[in-house]
């Protein structure tokens, strides 16, 4: 079984962020493997450990994203392809999906997976775009995966409940981070990752036309979200606190 996992390097949303002249500035510049993609890598590893096969990760991003590819290899992925871009590209989901679709054109695979969204923008679009370009059956927001002969069985968290969907291979699935706890690379894994094959392709060599690489959507600026002011904090006898807050909710806020 050949598993491709599309991964992305993103800023760590837990690190402090500032906005200077409309730009996002992270003092730490801490970049990480997108948490949802990490779950996709983990699930691919679990399935191939159980059923045999190979996991290859693909990343579209600048040179410094190599460290994120190394992380996925250290977790246990077998090989990697790095499609390199300039440092400050303003690609939207549609451009990434086009680039990946072009990459996959001449590849053979059973399953392509990725995170359901990237944790910095939360857009959640590239996965289903890629499936459409490649004309693959797909499911999004998977919270569980299993294999059944030639089918990938997806448990998807939908609006009405958990949908159990059978996908004939080849197929595409986007993963929630609720399906597993991604493994922490072991020292051995980290050592091995340095010897694993990593192919580098310059995006400029992929013969994508201008239209495919020009984003139809643009970020025009950033703002701090107006912060909620902390309200009143009560400490003391539980009976009194309960009564006080219940009365405030009823009389001051009118929400009971």
């Amino acid at each position: 079984m050949k598993f491709y996992v599309c991964i992305k390097q993103v800023p760590d949303v837990d690190a402090p962020i500032q906005i200077k002249e409309g730009n996002l500035i992270q003092d730490t510049d801490r970049m990480v493997l997108n948490a949802y993609d990490a779950s996709a890598v983990e699930e691919a590893l679990v399935l191939t450990e159980e059923h045999g096969g190979e996991v290859e990760v693909v990343l579209v991003g600048p040179e410094k994203a190599k460290e994120t590819i190394r992380k996925a290899l250290a977790m246990g992925a077998d090989k990697a392809t790095h499609i390199t871009t300039d440092n400050d590209v303003d690609y939207d989901s549609a451009v990434y999906a086009k680039v990946l679709a072009t990459f996959f054109e001449d590849k053979e695979y059973d399953v392509i997976s990725c995170g359901k969204q990237s944790q910095d923008t939360d857009a959640g679009l590239a996965g289903s775009m890629l499936a459409q370009h490649l004309d693959l059956p797909y499911a999004t927001n998977a919270v569980g995966l299993s294999m059944e002969e030639d089918k990938l069985v997806v448990k998807r968290q939908g609006d009405a409940g958990q949908e159990i969907i059978g996908l004939p291979q080849p197929c595409l699935v986007t993963c929630s981070n609720d399906m597993n706890e991604p493994r922490i690379p072991s020292l051995k894994g980290i050592m091995q990752s340095k010897r694993k094959p990593m192919e580098t392709i310059a995006l400029s060599d992929m013969n994508l036309d201008e239209a495919a690489l020009s984003a139809k959507t643009k970020v025009t600026g950033y703002m701090e979200k107006p912060e909620r002011e902390p309200g009143q904090k009560f400490e003391g006898e539980p009976d009194e606190l309960a009564q006080k807050v219940a009365t405030l909710l009823d009389e001051e806020e009118n929400v009971i």
Partner: peptide, 20 residues
């Protein structure tokens, strides 16, 4: 969740710009 499932695919299908 149903919208999230199809929005990207619909945009790819119709060559529409999309913001989610």
């Amino acid at each position: 969740e149903s919208t999230k499932d199809i929005l990207g695919a619909l945009a790819a299908n119709t060559d529409a710009a999309v913001l989610s």
